[in-house]
Write a protein that binds this DNA or RNA. Structure first.
Length: 604
RNA sequence: GCGCCCGUAGCUCAGUUGGAUAGAGCAUCGGUUUCCUAAACCGGAGGUCGCAGGUUCAAUUCCUGCCGGGCGCGCCA
């Protein structure tokens, strides 16, 4: 059942990466499991007889700082040694001699806790961060394996609303995280440019279409037509039949239908492009559903060849009841196709074109059955690579305050949300300048853009993607607390300190000056960033990185606000050491936000 | 009816393969700016982890059943 490993590892499609890879040449070689947990595990291993990896996985942070930085519960050993965990802990603590970064090992109830040496931790973590710069935290776990990521995929006949935000930003973050982890992602915008919806547009178009208005008003006119279709449909149910007929006409290649379809598509794409530009998103591949139009015959032939097709109510279906996946419809009564048919063709095309190691579909959780069916059908077709395909579901976006209905034209445009966020960011900058008597930055537009867009994007990425979200303006437009601007602000403060410092940050400092517990915690948080990337990539969960970034920023902010802790002082060795810590903090935040697709302004 | 997801503080959410006194942000109350950016920081108050069983030395975490919410289940995508 599983894919032959060799077959999936041959990578093709050498597409030039969008971003410069200059800073990302060197990648981390080692396993990103925390090196200190591992060191502790190696210390404990001989005394316990347990495997180092097993041990390292069981090591976690104690609940309170005064209990040390790492803890191991002796419960698994209790059964083996037939002793009470506290007794084992006491024996282990006595038997283990501290070494390296671990300066003390102490038993605490059933736990053996390790206390780390802040100086050694700082020396092992921080110089590496400034040395590697933009590459800090990147991994090579992907082994250059190709991973198509299907995301955003707006429907052209419908407006680009706020509900498209989720797939768009989650998918974009996955692409960037995969690249940072050493994979070769291919961002695919599987535009919904085919299907009955175009029949609907064509049906209403023949009644009242106005090409002049379309060219002038663009997508909002398409929305108006869409709304008009749905309004009229109530009184004229036959309009729906007409829509299906029109789609059939389109699928059969009728000239005028084709021409209009192309016009709708071009007008829509041009407007989508504005939103993508605001978000800083580009795709490697934008073939929409229409691209697979002439590939569906081959799919249907394969299905027929495997005896999978049956007739039911004049439609063509695949019976998947044996796998509790219901019945999958591949051809309508009138012979036209459905999106499952197109997705099967697309899956095959992607496999042929990219020879992927994983193939991701960032599509709402509501489509879970559809993808389960698609994967099962590929399995039945004898495609071993079906196992590499993964639906990455996310919770739907709802609107609390009022009922929203796209069909009635009631919609929040994604572009409007971004514009409002940017406007609010600009106001905040202006207000700050007024109140603190500072001059307005000369690049205020750029700043406001990064902050506003960053707020909207981070707000969507910070929680686990499977949760449903209720759209609320005040949450999307919040710049305080656990938000994108908070992270950007932390980075901006450090940037201005670096400027004041005026020298290059050196990794060669007197580490004995970094002995504060808060400094130790910060260094450990920075060290944990690559681990969060690994987990995020494995689980397709950007919030793991977002979470870690908030932790890093919070730890730095705590230090920063302390009266007794200033980075820049008369004491030059101390300044150099703290500058290294601060610069590492900024680098970690900038890198992590970059993986999430969020820019960082140098000033705020 | 069947299936999938979810239920943790007033609100929005974390909780890393079961483990020590369940953590943040917002809101609220009280503090912090002659000193590197207050979009920040510190402190207070606030929780029967939906309910009931079960497994386990140990359950917010795993299992079962209820209750409550979301989504899906053939000619839309």
């Amino acid at each position: 059942m599983g894919p032959p490993p060799g077959a999936l590892q041959i990578a093709t499609m050498p597409r030039p990466p969008r971003r410069s890879d200059a800073g990302r040449v060197r990648v981390q070689e080692s396993c990103p499991m925390s090196r200190f947990a591992r060191a502790f595990a190696e210390l404990l291993a001989p005394a316990t007889g347990l495997d180092v990896d097993e041990l390292a996985a069981a090591i976690g942070p104690p609940p309170r700082p005064e209990m040390g930085e790492l803890g191991f519960g002796c419960f698994p050993l209790a059964k083996l040694l037939r002793k009470a965990p506290p007794a084992i802990a006491a024996e282990l603590a006595a038997a283990v001699a501290p070494a390296g970064a671990i300066r003390e090992v102490r038993a605490e109830g059933p736990y053996v806790n390790a206390f780390l040496d802040p100086q050694i931790v700082a020396r092992e973590v921080l110089p590496d961060v400034v040395d590697r710069g933009d590459a800090y935290g990147t991994l090579d776990i992907g082994r250059d394996g190709c991973v198509p990521v299907d995301f955003s995929s707006p429907n052209i006949a419908k407006p680009f609303g706020i509900h498209h935000l989720r797939s768009t930003v989650i998918g974009h973050a996955l692409v960037r995280m995969l690249r940072a982890a050493g994979y070769r992602p291919v961002g695919i915008n599987h535009i919904g440019d085919w299907g009955t919806q175009f029949g609907q547009l064509l049906a209403i178009w023949e009644l009242e279409g106005d090409e002049q208005r379309l060219r002038e008003e663009g997508i909002s006119y398409l929305l108006a037509l869409y709304v008009e279709f749905n309004t009229r449909k109530v009184e004229q149910p036959e309009l729906q039949d007409r829509a299906r007929a029109m789609f059939k006409l389109l699928e059969d290649g009728e000239d005028e239908a084709r021409r209009l379809w192309k016009l709708f598509r071009d007008v829509s794409l041009a407007e989508f492009e504005r939103v993508y530009a605001m978000l800083g998103i580009s795709f490697d591949d934008i073939c929409g559903e229409s691209f697979y139009e002439n590939r569906m015959g081959a799919v249907l032939e394969q299905l027929a060849g495997k005896q999978l097709l049956t007739e039911s109510d004049e439609a063509t279906v695949i019976d998947l009841e044996a796998w509790d996946l219901g019945t999958a419809l591949v051809k309508k009564r009138d012979g036209s196709t459905l999106y499952l048919t197109r997705d099967l063709a697309a899956a095959e095309y992607r496999h042929e074109t990219y020879t992927f190691v994983r193939s991701l579909y960032v599509v709402g959780a509501a489509q879970a059955l559809h993808f389960a069916q698609m994967i099962k059908v590929l399995d039945l077709l004898g495609k071993p690579w079906h196992a590499a395909i993964q639906h990455v579901p996310f919770g739907m976006m709802r609107f609390d305050d009022r009922k929203m209905s796209t069909r009635k034209g009631d919609i929040i445009f994604l572009e409007d949300v971004l514009v409002r966020a940017v406007d609010l960011a600009r106001e905040t900058i202006e207000k700050g300048a007024r109140e603190k008597g500072r001059e307005l930055p000369e690049n205020i537009d750029e700043q406001a853009h990064k902050i506003g867009v960053g707020a909207v994007v981070f707000n969507d990425l910070k929680n686990r993607r499977t949760r449903d979200v209720v759209f609320k303006w005040d949450e999307v437009l919040s710049f305080e607390g656990a938000t994108g601007p908070y992270l950007q602000y932390t980075a901006a403060r450090i940037a201005s300190m670096k400027e004041k410092y005026g020298r290059a940050v050196s990794g060669d400092v007197d580490f004995s000056r970094l002995s504060d517990p808060d400094e130790l915690r910060l260094a450990l948080a920075i060290e944990a960033l690559p681990h969060s990337l690994r987990r995020a990539v494995d689980a397709c969960e950007p919030s793991f990185v977002a979470d870690r970034l908030l932790d890093i920023a919070a730890r730095f902010s705590t230090l920063y606000a302390r009266k007794d802790w200033k980075v820049i002082s008369e004491d030059e060795p101390l300044t150099a050491a703290r500058m290294l810590l601060a610069a590492s903090t900024r680098q970690a935040i900038v890198n992590g936000l970059d993986w999430l697709g969020i820019d960082v302004p140098t000033r705020m």
